[in-house]
Design a protein around this nucleic acid. Structure first.
Length: 364
DNA sequence: TACACGTGGTA
DNA sequence: TTACCAAGTGT
């Protein structure tokens, strides 16, 4: 064990810490839909949705998802397009595809029972060290660490640990701390309480230390340095991509749609055909050549765009310029392209940027 | 290890 | 407006 961690842990009264923390949680825990029971599947879905995503954002998605896919079997046998549609707008879409893949694995290899073995559950797609610990502790009362951003922030303050929580190597230090602090009788409430404390009290900026149930256990508070922790290095800025997008309509009134590649950004989602702009040529000319080359579609492209919009991802920005075009063609090449009517476009999963384009069209 | 991977909310 | 964030994982 790290020497500093060992030193800091020796200053803790862990039994009193557990008692104060869990008593606070029992009194103050939010009434959230995934806390209705300890069904491992319900816990699992919630943990995947909550990755890098706010509770308020997740709640309506979670309720719809559980209504549509109430059991492991329901999700295992659902078409992927239905799952992606249910995930539309949540982001990090590989979570949805990995979840369904893992659920199918549980159905086929484990008789539909989410495994309790840390090695087995960690081998499931999309289940990393945090999610494995969360499911095992919350659903099965197994004393495994569930270290997320909240827990690292809370523990960096409680134990006055100055490890950079942005570094992957720091995770294991906090996991080790949890293994020493966790309440073996109620690991579910202990882990949830640590996260709840981080979400409600021990917030990133201006923590509410005067309301904190474990204030007397907090080394950072005792030294008045809670605002200096945790240490978290900054990320680099995002790059910008100039994108040309075209809404092609044929004589039936159907729109040309393209399904994105199965790997990478927005995998398997549908979009209006788009490509990265070459700075030299005129946009309408580039679009015409793009449609002929990639879709075998001869189209007449408007001279001026109908819409300009930026879309910001976590790691890049699309500067989108959207044109409309008309064609007499009824066929298109590429098995990932299709002509869609209005109902079909409503039915498939689009990235938020393209859903905005569509909604803009509907409102004009 | 560092970066890809989404989105909407907040200071 | 920029920057950071919010219950991380895969490569």
């Amino acid at each position: 064990m790290q020497e500093t961690l060992q030193n800091q842990l020796e200053k803790m009264n862990e039994k009193e810490f557990q008692k104060d923390l869990i008593q606070w949680f029992e009194k103050e825990m939010r009434d959230l839909p995934w806390r209705k029971n300890q069904d491992p599947y319900r816990v699992w879905v919630s943990e995947i949705m909550l990755q890098q995503t706010r509770v308020d954002t997740v709640i309506p998605y979670y309720n719809r998802f559980m209504e549509q896919f109430p059991t492991i079997e329901a999700l295992a046998f659902a078409p992927e397009e239905k799952v992606l549609k249910a995930w539309e707008g949540l982001g990090y879409y590989s979570r949805a595809r990995n979840l369904q893949s893992a659920v199918r694995e549980v159905h086929e290899q484990y008789g539909g029972q989410v495994p309790k073995d840390p090695k087995e559950i960690s081998a499931l797609k999309g289940v990393g060290p945090y999610t494995a610990g969360a499911i095992l502790s919350i659903a099965y009362d197994i004393p495994e660490p569930a270290v997320d951003g909240n827990v690292m922030r809370v523990l960096s303050r409680i134990l006055s640990l100055w490890d950079d929580i942005a570094k992957p190597s720091s995770r294991k230090i906090f996991e080790e701390a949890v293994r020493h602090l966790i309440n073996k009788e109620n690991p579910s409430y202990f882990n949830q309480a640590m996260m709840e404390l981080g979400a409600l009290i021990c917030t990133p900026t201006s923590p509410s230390c005067l309301l904190c149930p474990v204030q007397e256990h907090c080394l950072a508070f005792s030294e008045g340095i809670q605002r200096d922790l945790p240490v978290k290095t900054k990320k680099k800025s995002t790059k910008v991509i100039d994108l040309l997008t075209v809404m092609v309509q044929n004589q039936d009134g159907d729109w040309l749609m393209n399904q994105r590649p199965a790997q990478g950004l927005l995998a398997n989602l549908w979009e209006f055909p788009s490509f990265e702009k070459q700075q030299e040529q005129e946009s309408a000319v580039q679009i015409q050549e793009f449609l002929k080359t990639d879709f075998n579609v001869e189209a007449v492209v408007d001279a001026e765009p109908v819409l300009v919009q930026d879309h910001v991802f976590s790691h890049l920005t699309w500067k989108m310029v959207i044109f409309k075009a008309k064609t007499k063609d009824q066929t298109s090449i590429g098995d990932r392209a299709a002509w869609m009517n209005r109902e079909a476009i409503e039915r498939v999963a689009l990235p938020v940027s393209h859903r905005k384009i569509w909604n803009h069209y509907l409102s004009t």
